[in-house]
Design a protein around this nucleic acid. Structure first.
Lengths: 96, 96
DNA sequence: CCTATATTTAGATAATTGGCTAATTATTGA
DNA sequence: TCAATAATTAGCCAATTATCTAAATATAGG
């Protein structure tokens, strides 16, 4: 797991919106682009960043490229958060 | 809760290390600086970013400024992750 | 094989970021 | 009040990033 790539990918609002867009199901690059006010190359760049973080999977289907969420990374992300906060929050929160 | 500030704050490795350092308990700016190979002003900048994300609290104690983790934001962060992945991962993972 | 369509890659540029040193502010204690 | 200590703010610079347009690549269908 590439921790830095994951955090970096999540740091951009456009990329987070792409993830949210893909919750509704996989979509082609063009479909996604239609929902964003941004050039296709810019979005393509964001797809790459998300892919480096292993947050997206893609598959060519004819002329189209279909992107979909890789939900398995969700667990990694949760683990990273726990790591940062030392999971004290779970067992005993003595600072309320 | 400032979502963008939170994600941005977590995107930097130095800042993540600061958070981890503070898991061991609160510490003064100088104490923390002693653990990092970086100038104090640079660290001070990182403290600010973390504070904007509400990840840190600080309190002046004499000449020192004591920083500590704000663990309540942990829940916010977890919520944001769930939001991104649509918590499908919890109920039904049909892509193993 | 050629053209249209979908997408990515290349290359340029403006904005942001992360680091530094120097200067400033705040506090303590003599 | 002054010197010492702790930390921040200011100002500068190099590296990274997000965006764009133009060019390249891949595929489908006639």
């Amino acid at each position: 797991m590439k921790q830095q790539a994951l955090f970096k990918a999540l740091a951009d609002p456009t990329r987070r919106q792409i993830l949210k867009r893909l919750r509704r199901g996989s979509a082609t690059a063009g479909d996604i682009a239609a929902d964003f006010e941004m050039s296709k190359p810019s979005l393509s760049h964001h797809f790459n960043v998300l892919k480096e973080a292993d947050l997206l999977r893609n598959e060519r289907r004819g002329q189209h490229i279909v992107y979909s969420l890789n939900t398995t990374v969700f667990e990694d992300a949760a683990g990273l958060l726990l790591d940062l906060f030392g999971n004290r929050a779970r067992e005993d929160s003595n600072e309320n």
